[in-house]
């Protein structure tokens, strides 16, 4: 059994004029020490997926259904107290903006000690020792001096290293990193990603990396999910998806990258933009932008326009697309319909 098993997760946001479904039928799993990338554009639901793992969705959001099993234990419906034992301790998070994550009025050392003492019964002296050890692991220059510095005294890259050290503080099983390098410069980003990768490998820590950057996913993760409008549309080994994407949306994303076209020529753009979650089209959410759906007719067209595609297996990947299932000669399986 996997370390983390997410099945049919539904997350909704209760609004005055009805619920908005931010996640529909999201399933994935993570083995011990495995690195998983979640890719998608803004609004695809990738951050909601990660936040819901620790029930960190704030009101009006709520988990409407599904199950999240971590190490054999169901997390949905757990008390706040039980979840607090898991958060930071067994599953920790790294957020996008390092300045927002660190407490500006506590020194780096105090924040690390506070976190350790919340989870373990140890003396401040011992806790400082562990904190220092973690700062050494993230290769911060002069780590002793950093313990007594405040976040504003550090540069962006340095702060993100401190945050990685805090995430590793209690030797978690999984780190969830939500766009950890988006706020950083290219050269710093490369260093931070390399550091995160080597630490995860060395300590056998699982990583869930949320990003919109296909380059980062391809270099760091072993498996990836592609999300679109609240659903997983493709999942599989990163190399397979990057080398041979099956879903028209994933293909479109890859082909739209400037490095995929000859310099100066027209880029292969995906027309239109992602629909907002309160106004999803019927059938496959991608059909208004999908060139296969647009060109098809008859029964095929009806499938794309009216039925939500179910997953089909292609190689080691799962893909939710009527066209792919047809090309592979599958019977058309509609998804378990969850639309209200």
């Amino acid at each position: 059994m996997s370390l983390l098993d997410v099945n049919h997760l539904d997350v909704r946001f209760a609004l005055r004029n009805g619920d908005i479904q931010a996640l529909r039928d999201v399933s994935f799993s993570l083995d011990r020490g495995e690195r998983l990338g979640i890719v998608g554009e803004s609004g695809a639901g990738k951050s909601v997926a990660a936040f819901s793992l620790l029930n960190l969705i704030s009101k009006p959001g709520y988990i409407a259904g599904g199950s999240i099993r971590f190490d054999g234990q169901e997390l949905i419906g757990q008390s706040e107290r039980a979840l607090r034992h898991i958060r930071g301790h067994r599953i920790s998070m790294i957020f996008q903006d390092p300045m927002m994550t660190l407490n500006p009025v506590l020194s780096i050392g105090d924040q690390m000690v506070e976190c350790l003492k919340a989870h373990r019964r140890i003396s401040t002296h011992e806790a400082r020792g562990i904190a220092l050890h973690k700062l050494v692991q993230v290769q911060i220059p002069s780590p002793e001096a950093r313990l007594d510095q405040y976040p504003h005294e550090l540069s962006g890259g340095m702060r993100q290293r401190v945050i990685i050290a805090i995430a590793l503080l209690l030797d978690p099983d999984i780190i969830i990193a939500d766009e950890p390098t988006t706020a950083l410069d290219v050269t710093i980003q490369a260093e931070i990603m390399a550091l995160l990768l080597s630490l995860c490998e060395k300590h056998n820590v699982g990583l869930i990396l949320i990003t919109h950057d296909l380059g980062v996913v391809s270099q760091v993760t072993q498996r990836m999910l592609v999300m679109y409008a609240g659903r997983v549309i493709e999942e599989g080994p990163t190399r397979e998806i990057i080398n041979d994407p099956q879903h028209p949306y994933t293909q479109g994303l890859m082909n739209a990258l400037p490095q995929m076209a000859t310099p100066g020529s027209r880029l292969n753009q995906i027309p239109g933009s992602m629909p907002s979650l309160d106004n999803l089209p019927d059938g496959c959410a991608f059909h208004p932008r999908c060139h296969f759906a647009m060109r098809s007719d008859g029964q095929r067209r009806q499938a794309c326009y009216e039925h939500v595609p179910g997953f089909v297996t292609s190689g080691n990947c799962r893909v939710a697309c009527h066209m792919v299932s047809e090309m592979l000669g599958y019977e058309r399986i509609p998804a378990e319909e969850t639309t209200s």
């Binding site: 554009e41 919109h212 994303l253 400037p258 880029l267 292969n268 753009q269 995906i270």
Partner: peptide, 14 residues
């Protein structure tokens, strides 16, 4: 802008 939109705007500029 989002990845799929970046290509559209870049094409427009070209």
């Amino acid at each position: 802008l989002d990845v799929s939109i970046q290509a559209q705007v870049l094409n427009l500029l070209m």
